[in-house]
Amino acid sequence: MSVLGFELEWFDEVSGILQTLYLKFFLDDNTIEILKGTSTFLKRIFYPEVKLSDLFVGNSITVFNRLFLIKKFANKATTEYMNAREVRYLCRIGRDNLSQLGKLLIVAKNVGLVLGKVVTTSSSFYSSILAADQGDVVIELVGKLCTNRDALLKAIQVPSLSSVDAVMASAQEIEDALRSCGKASFRSQNCTLCLVKPHIMKSQTTGELLNAVTASGDFQIKAVFSIHMTLSMGEELFEVYRGLYHNYSAMLEHMCSTPVLAVLVTGTGSNADYEDIVSSFREFVGPGDPALAKVLRPESLRARFGESVVKNSVHCTDLPEDGEMECRYFFETLSSL
């Protein structure tokens, strides 16, 4: 087989119309073409940000600043090809053990899995494949070209992942289960937002970064939520930086290029009610320029994981008075969409 077909959904923010398009992925040279009906929407090109590993049902991709949701395989041949090579897991981590999330993502990467959707449950639920309590985190993991389809089930049988449940499931079963989770709800005070940027998600170093946050001993993860932001969502969040950030346009484009992971962070133990968690976490994240961070704060997140001013690993809340507002924007406003 030389060409795969995928049905896409695209919301045109200008016209306000939800459109159905079709993407062709050419296996011989990894090029793509997008059709609108029988007409060409995007002529065949090589677009390096779209890889075969990105093309699974439920995932979203960005091509020239347009966000496309992959709804389904477009034909029987593609369905058979992808199903023969794809494995999916749905995992659950208890709300009191979210420090294990980073470890799970590292293990998943090591067995060839990529991160799909992530939600924090708003209430207890039971589906045909998984049960979870309020505040638990449910994670979709997807693998391509997997020769050992139960590799994750074996890999999580270690004490450090004792609170992780995992089950293999179909795309439809996972979609139904995630819908049963409800939307993440905002329940914290004295919190700050950590937004894991697209380049970290694409390079699959999200697990190492989250491990660094919890291993510090000063911070704990209370909720997580994955979303592919549109340009309008990004503009609403980052509008205050427009006149302050000389790379604003590049930063905004990067933040909307692939899904990001929103992480609600609080203090630990006796510091759980620490009122200046925003400033404390911002100091832990480090200066905005990773090159400067490597000199001034070599143990900071941006020194360890940042690549450039735009790709500096994470966005974190800047001002103490904005911590609750930014968390509420993701874990209340965006999660309800």
Rank of each mutant, 00 (worst) to 15 (best):
S99T: 03
M251Y: 03
G267A: 12
E332F: 05
D96G: 13
F11S: 06
D165C: 06
G243R: 00
G269K: 13
E239K: 12
V50L: 10
C194Q: 11
K36A: 13
M255T: 07
R179D: 06
T31S: 15
V295Q: 14
Y241L: 07
V314F: 02
S249F: 00
Q134A: 04
S162P: 00
K36P: 02
H199D: 13
C91M: 04
Q157V: 05
K183Y: 08
G143W: 02
Q172I: 09
S336N: 11
G207V: 02
Y241C: 00
Q189M: 06
S280Y: 14
I139T: 09
Q134R: 14
N211S: 12
T214Q: 06
E235I: 06
A131Q: 14
F125A: 04
L153W: 01
E49L: 14
C146L: 11
K72F: 00
K202M: 09
I227N: 11
V240I: 00
T317N: 03
T333R: 15
A132S: 10
E86F: 03
L178I: 09
G94P: 02
T78C: 02
L145D: 15
S160D: 08
T206Q: 06
G143R: 04
S203L: 07
F56T: 02
K72C: 05
N65C: 07
S160H: 09
K197Q: 15
I139S: 08
V14N: 15
Y274A: 15
N65L: 12
G243K: 00
N211Y: 02
G288D: 13
Y81M: 00
A212G: 03
E324Y: 11
L130N: 08
L252A: 10
E9V: 09
E235D: 10
L42S: 15
R187M: 05
V278E: 05
F330M: 09
L319R: 12
D150Y: 03
K294W: 04
K103V: 11
M168N: 13
M325C: 05
F186C: 01
S335G: 10
L301V: 09
H254C: 13
V142W: 09
R95N: 13
L153E: 10
F281Y: 13
S226V: 09
L21M: 15
G58D: 01
N59P: 01
L141W: 05
S185F: 01
L98Y: 00
T266N: 08
S335T: 07
T266Y: 01
L301D: 12
G5W: 04
N148Y: 04
D322C: 09
F25G: 08
D322R: 15
T147D: 15
E7H: 07
C256D: 03
L8V: 02
V142N: 13
F186D: 00
M168D: 01
T147E: 15
S122C: 08
D96V: 01
L195P: 04
S99F: 04
R85E: 10
S249W: 00
L35V: 02
